[in-house]
């Protein structure tokens, strides 16, 4: 692991705003000496929900509801995924990001459904938690979940 040398130092707390509650942190890199103004200030656009719900409830995307599939086989392609995920409802978008070293799937994928119910059914069936038999993608049991959650209630401006 890391041996404490001149550039590494152990501190009690991380500096600045984020992430707190770290007791012993090894810090490294010359970016810590950077005192320039944060570019992450300001008002951020977000998608407004119609009904209030808990912070961990699934969030709506602009066009539909997005789910994430993990544990997918590395040779999975959009064309392998589409027939499986399209059974549950209208699919708007599928994204299978690739590993840049190998050119194969990185192990996760996003699927966007138009309807909430379709996405919910897809998660249940792909996880094997529904009454239906579990659906496999390339003979692999994938794991599905919502990709976005609502987070804490905000009072910022809406997205245009």
């Amino acid at each position: 692991m890391i041996s404490p040398d001149n550039d590494s130092m152990t501190v009690d707390q991380t500096a600045g705003e984020q992430p707190a509650k770290l007791h012993s942190v090894v810090r490294r890199g010359r970016g810590f000496n950077n005192n320039s103004k944060s570019t992450l200030d300001g008002d951020f656009d977000h998608i407004e929900e119609d009904t209030p719900d808990s912070a961990s409830a699934p969030a709506k995307s602009t066009e539909g509801y997005t789910i994430i599939l993990t544990n997918i086989h590395e040779e999975t392609q959009t064309t392998d995924l589409r027939p499986v995920v399209a059974q549950f409802g209208q699919v708007l978008n599928i994204s299978v990001p690739l590993c840049f070293r190998t050119g194969l799937a990185k192990g996760y994928a996003f699927v966007q459904y138009k309807d909430f119910e379709a996405a919910k059914t897809a998660i249940a069936v792909l996880n094997g938690t529904s009454d239906e038999p579990r659906e496999l993608v390339l003979e692999v049991e994938v794991t599905a979940d919502w990709a976005f959650v609502r987070g804490p209630a905000r009072s910022g401006r809406q997205r245009k």
């Binding site: 977000h46 998608i47 993990t70 990709a147 976005f148």
Partner: peptide, 13 residues
Amino acid sequence: RKEAYLSKASIQA
């Protein structure tokens, strides 16, 4: 400027 909240599964990935 865009902001959204990722689920635990997305964070895990």
